[in-house]
Design a protein around this nucleic acid. Structure first.
Length: 488
RNA sequence: GGGCCAUUAGCUCAAUUGGCAGAGCAACUGACUCUUAAUCAGUAGGUUGAAGGUUCGAUUCCUUCAUGGCCCA
């Protein structure tokens, strides 16, 4: 209990029961229990055998129906829930006293034999019971659960405790990440870990979190992306690497953004962005088939999103003609800026940024089925190779599903002189006040000078991917402890 | 950053035109040896998010603040 909690009537009664255990020689916070059986397993075994067998299990009491000299209570562990039937004439006298001093929320250990009640419910006939941990607070209401979103995010343990579908989301999250690892390992990608603390925060257009290293007496940043380190590893001779880990961006929060979020980045030598598209298709299909044994699923208001390949590929410029009903090719930057300001009250200087903003407004919401948008304007993508057929463009794509951006990939720029010039352009923007512009990273340029083979790179926002596969409306529903403002 | 909405018992929610702060679950006491949202009888539980203001009187109207949600940027 913390200082902010008052002793309410309910808590007082639980403290009195806790004291009863102490006075009678029990430990209200036991050391261990020999839990032999997971609840799911004993129910499954009884369904098969339909015979009485002894069990020893433990979990949290989640319901209690006491009837004088007998009672039924539900005990829940991570695998499931089982009903326990306890009657005074079947257990030591003192154990029934123990039962009477238990509350919903307490952890208990139970031994007994499996049987089926007259009403047909598979249950444990209790032979002994022990309190393992006393719970001092009442659980949220058994019927309505915990609905208040603020409480659910701040006290996620309660949300997990009383809302079973929340537990399912995070189990699915783990399964998805496992399946990504298996997919990449099976293709001989090496999982690596690169620095979270970086002196030059690079690899993305974002504002970093700044902190201070005491021993070096130096400013240091939380990473906004692992990109520049992963590509150093390609210089170092690894040919396929990936990292699944946290990025930090000092930006606002909404249903698609949390300041810390999980990113998959992978790099493959001798590959280009076309190869990355093939990986994205296979990766998503692999996840979907692992989870649901099919290639279609519903997300949000879209009942049928079909992941069967090949996914649509269309260039950024062409996408306007197809989805927005106008062309950007024959328009001057001034015309495009005017359109953007009219629609969005936003002013952007560079052609690439103007077109991307227009794209966000006019095209992105219409990209429901999986779509690769390819070939961005050069000035907004400083780490990307110039397009082999059009030097106004770069070889970059982003992948969209259900109007949501889920990934970003390039043919990686590996010409050190070109890279240096692009950084210099970015530094000019930074000095002109664009706080998302990238910084000069001489060490990275130096690495490229040693030679990086042609390389394809891909980044996938894991939280959004999990939103998609679990049909979650907000990123806060797929992050266990989303960032919240402190109370008071 | 802007707009709208919310905040009442541990939880889920009420409260008519501004007129005694209410229910269900949880808790407590009693009855009850096959219940499962157990049942029956009774009891207790509130600084109505915070601070001001208007008023004889504020959960209700006004202002500011805090936190959250939704939408927009």
């Amino acid at each position: 209990m913390t200082e902010q909690n008052e002793i309410t009537q309910v808590i007082q009664s639980r403290i009195e029961k806790l004291n009863w255990f102490i006075e009678n020689g029990y430990k209200p916070f036991e050391y261990r229990f020999d839990k032999k059986d997971a609840i799911h397993d004993i129910i499954e075994r009884f369904e098969k055998e339909e015979s009485e067998f002894p069990v020893s299990t433990a979990g949290r009491i989640t319901a209690n129906r006491i009837m004088g000299k007998a009672g039924f209570f539900d005990i829940t562990d991570v695998s499931g829930k089982v009903q326990v039937y306890i009657r005074k004439d079947q257990i030591p006298e003192q154990d029934f006293e123990v039962y009477k001093h238990l509350d919903v929320g307490d952890f208990a250990g139970v031994t007994g034999t499996m049987f089926r009640t007259h009403k047909g419910e598979i249950s444990i006939l209790c032979k002994s019971i022990i309190l393992l941990t006393k719970s001092l607070h009442p659980l949220p209401e058994k019927w309505h659960g915990l609905k208040d979103k603020e409480l659910r995010y701040r006290k996620r343990y309660l949300d997990l405790l009383v809302n079973p579908e929340v537990k399912e989301v995070f189990i699915t999250r783990s399964r998805i990440i496992n399946s990504i690892r298996e997919f990449l390992n099976s293709r001989n990608f090496l999982e690596v870990e690169t620095p979270m603390l970086q002196f030059v925060p690079g690899g993305a257009a974002a504002r970093p979190f700044k902190t201070h290293h005491n021993a070096l007496n130096s400013e240091i940043y939380l990473r906004i992306a692992p990109e520049l380190y992963l590509k150093r590893l390609i210089v170092g001779g690894f040919e396929k690497v990936f990292e699944i880990n946290r990025n930090f961006r000092n930006e606002g929060m909404d249903r698609n953004h949390n300041p810390e979020f999980t990113m998959l980045e992978l790099y493959q030598a001798y590959a280009d962005y076309n190869d990355m598209m093939l990986i994205v298709e296979d990766l998503f299909i692999n996840i979907c088939e692992t989870l649901y044994q099919k290639k279609e699923l519903a997300f949000n208001e879209f009942p049928n999103i079909n992941l069967a390949k090949p996914w649509k590929r269309i260039s950024m410029e062409d996408s306007f003609e197809e989805f927005a009903g106008f062309s950007v090719k024959n328009k001057s930057i001034t015309e495009l800026q005017a359109m953007l300001e009219e629609k969005d009250k936003v002013k952007q200087e560079k052609l690439g940024k103007v077109i991307e903003k227009l794209f966000e407004v006019f095209v992105q919401p219409k990209l429901i089925q999986p779509t690769f948008i390819t070939d961005y304007i050069k000035d907004s993508s400083p780490l990307t190779k110039v397009h082999r057929n059009d030097d106004r463009l770069v070889e970059r794509f982003e992948v969209f599903i259900a109007g949501m951006e889920l990934g970003n990939a390039f043919s990686e720029l590996n010409n050190p002189w070109d890279q240096k010039e692009r950084f210099e352009e970015q530094v000019k923007d930074l000095e002109a006040g664009d706080d998302e512009a990238q910084r000069m990273d001489y060490d990275y340029v130096n690495a490229l000078e040693f030679g990086m083979p042609p390389t394809g790179g891909l980044g996938v926002g894991i939280d959004r991917l999990i939103m998609f596969f679990t049909n979650a409306p907000s990123i806060r529903d797929v992050i266990l402890f989303p960032l919240m403002k402190p109370e008071i």
